[in-house]
């Protein structure tokens, strides 16, 4: 009941903000259309396949999660600054219940975001005469659940650690980092060198990769399981850091 009440509140706050539709749904869809058009203009001799629909769609989904992170950070930082969170901390709720109350509604919004992105991708595939595996899309959506949770945790960390003016700015920097090192808009594996080495140490490249591997329905893929393990490590780490920062900063208010 307590988590449900808090979850509903958080969902309403996000869904009543028109900007959340523009950024969480509109922007990824626009990028999906633009990149599909760009892909058509790339000559086959270039042998560049990252904008092929089956590879582009999981990358766009991960790009969408970065905005989920942004809105999570904005919501939490505003709650802290308005002392609303401080007031809520007077309620007989445990820290994990607060985390769950923030996480659950945003997770559902992220799942809906994936559903909308994939539905749009199916429509584009139909128009373009391309094939997209429904099983691959379902597998990739399922694979994304820990990725979504990880991005939500990043949002909680930013919202708990920074004010409502600085949190969105820092989130924007992180969105750029995800775009570059996640290999969303370019083939960073082909770039190689220290850039690729750095990307492999961060979770963003693997977030995109496991989505692509799952889309290809390659369940035996080493990249899928290895990447999944890295995501799991980051998921646990961000959860623990998020809990600690939230607890510390709410106490200090």
């Amino acid at each position: 009941m307590k988590i449900k009440a808090f979850s509903f509140r958080n969902a309403k706050e996000i869904l009543r903000d028109p900007l959340s539709y523009i950024f969480c749904v509109g922007f990824p869809l626009v990028m999906l259309v633009i990149m599909t058009v760009v892909n058509k203009s790339i000559p086959k001799e270039a042998a560049m396949d990252i904008f092929n629909l089956s590879k582009l769609v999981p990358a766009i989904a991960v790009f969408g999660f970065t905005f989920i992170m942004l809105f999570m950070a904005i919501l939490l930082s505003k709650d802290r600054e308005s002392m609303f969170l401080s007031r809520l901390c007077g309620a007989p709720m445990k820290p994990w219940e607060f985390m769950a109350g923030y996480t659950l509604p945003v997770l559902i919004i992220a799942l809906l975001q994936v559903a909308v992105t994939y539905a749009a991708a199916l429509l584009i595939a139909f128009i373009e005469g391309e094939k997209l595996s429904l099983l691959g899309m379902a597998m990739s959506a399922a694979t994304f659940i820990p990725v979504m949770l990880m991005f939500i945790n990043f949002g909680i960390i930013l919202g708990a650690a920074f004010g409502s003016k600085s949190a969105p700015g820092i989130a924007s920097v992180l969105i750029t980092v995800v775009s570059l090192l996640g290999g969303i808009w370019m083939d960073i594996e082909a770039l190689g060198g220290s850039f690729f080495a750095a990307a492999k140490k961060l979770p963003f490249y693997w977030a995109v990769e496991i989505g692509r591997e799952a889309m290809a329905t390659d369940v035996g893929s080493q990249r899928l399981w290895g990447g999944g393990l890295i995501i799991a490590i980051y998921l646990i780490a961000t959860f623990l850091i998020g809990m600690a920062v939230l607890k510390k900063n709410v106490q200090e208010m």
Partner: peptide
């Protein structure tokens, strides 16, 4: 906490609700 409640000096409520 079940027996007490607090109204802070700042107007602390859910703005969008």
């Amino acid at each position: 906490k079940k027996r007490i409640n607090f109204s802070p000096q700042e107007t602390a409520f859910a703005q969008g609700l």
